[in-house]
């Protein structure tokens, strides 16, 4: 009989969900309409409960971000460490999928009855700000920045104050001076309107990003027919390619949007960036590895896997 999967994502349809829409289209095509996916934007769960929903079998597929609940997914938070040096979305896909393939990571997600299917690659979370551009490390002192997780820690390390506002409140928070700066990917700066408040945008700070995998419920995955499973697994690459092409178009428009809104592109010097990395990246990475190792998990091994994969990815493109 026909298989219908419920897929839980949130917000509105946007660049960030295009690979999910694409994979739904592909599996339906490949199985002649036998295996369909019903993508729900917020109707089935709150974003921070998506992993719980997968765990209890409320729906079969879902997207979530590692930073929403680090203790649920300690190991993939390695991908959210600051200043990893990832330069583009292809590299982001390569390192994410290498980490997802590690047995310890798969084991941790299996505790939630979840199988990692693919990532939702996000560009670096560069910041938009109001007022005078901040292009020196010293100017980050006392800056109120909307940033979460590892990114928030990195800004703390250089004296900034991460301020918690939800993504939907970010615009209001910026307008009201609750924060001076907001760290988002480009598509989020557009969809949450923070770009409209901005005077400047850091073009090369590249402080890090968030990692948002798409997972499937293991029981549901295993009860697929061989043909259906092949259709799903075989569509991942094509879905990601579609996502990258779509996001690429958005990035092409980005410079034009900056011009149109009169936002200054701030370029930070190499010395300042190096200083930022020493102050923020190294101690946070060391603390992360120590904390993960202390729980008997392969923190060092995962970090090394990430660096070697990244080096390879840089070599090939």
């Amino acid at each position: 009989s026909a298989t219908e999967w419920n897929v839980s994502v949130w917000g509105k349809r946007r660049a960030f969900t295009e690979h999910i829409e694409k994979i739904a289209e592909l599996v339906s095509e490949k199985t002649g309409g036998e295996f369909t996916m019903n993508v729900s934007y917020g109707g089935l769960s709150k974003n921070r409960e998506n992993l719980d929903g997968i765990s209890i079998g409320a729906f079969e597929m879902a997207q979530f971000c590692a930073g929403y609940h680090p203790d649920k997914n300690r190991l993939i938070t390695v991908l959210e460490l600051p200043f990893l040096g990832v330069e583009n979305l292809d590299q982001e896909v390569a390192v994410s999928h290498a980490i997802y393939g590690h047995p310890a990571v798969q084991e941790e997600m299996a505790q939630w009855n979840a199988k990692l299917l693919m990532t939702s690659p996000m560009p670096q979370y560069n910041i938009v700000g109001t007022g005078e551009p901040r292009d020196e490390l010293a100017e980050f002192e006392g800056m109120r920045v909307r940033a979460t997780g590892g990114l928030g820690e990195a800004f703390t390390a250089v004296g900034a104050v991460p301020t918690s506002v939800t993504a939907t409140e970010a615009y209001q928070a910026m307008e009201s001076g609750v924060v001076d700066t907001v760290a988002f990917a480009q598509h989020a700066h557009l969809s949450f309107g923070t770009i409209n408040q901005a005077d400047w945008w850091t073009a090369n700070l590249n402080p890090g990003t968030v990692n948002c995998p798409v997972v499937v419920n293991i029981d549901a995955y295993e009860s697929l027919s061989d043909e259906e499973r092949a259709a799903l697994d075989g569509s991942v690459d094509e879905a990601i390619t579609h996502y990258l092409a779509n996001y690429g178009e958005l990035l092409k428009k980005w410079d034009a949007i900056l011009d149109e809104k009169g936002v200054t592109k701030v370029v930070i010097s190499d010395e300042e960036l190096a200083a930022f990395r020493t102050q923020a990246a190294d101690p946070i990475r060391d603390a992360w590895i120590a904390e993960i190792e202390a729980q008997g998990l392969p923190g060092q091994e995962l970090f090394d896997l990430l660096t070697t994969t990244l080096a390879q990815a840089k070599g090939t493109n």
């Binding site: 921070r48 719980d52 765990s55 209890i56 930073g67 929403y68 609940h69 680090p70 203790d71 649920k72 979460t148 997780g149 928030g152 991460p162 918690s164 729980q295």
Partner: peptide, 23 residues
């Protein structure tokens, strides 16, 4: 059960689920 999924005393602070900003 929702509580139980977030509770595991073999981990630091018994925590198997944490909040977004300060963990």
């Amino acid at each position: 059960e929702h509580f139980d999924r977030s509770f595991d005393c073999s981990r630091p602070l018994c925590s198997r689920d944490s909040s977004i900003d300060i963990g």
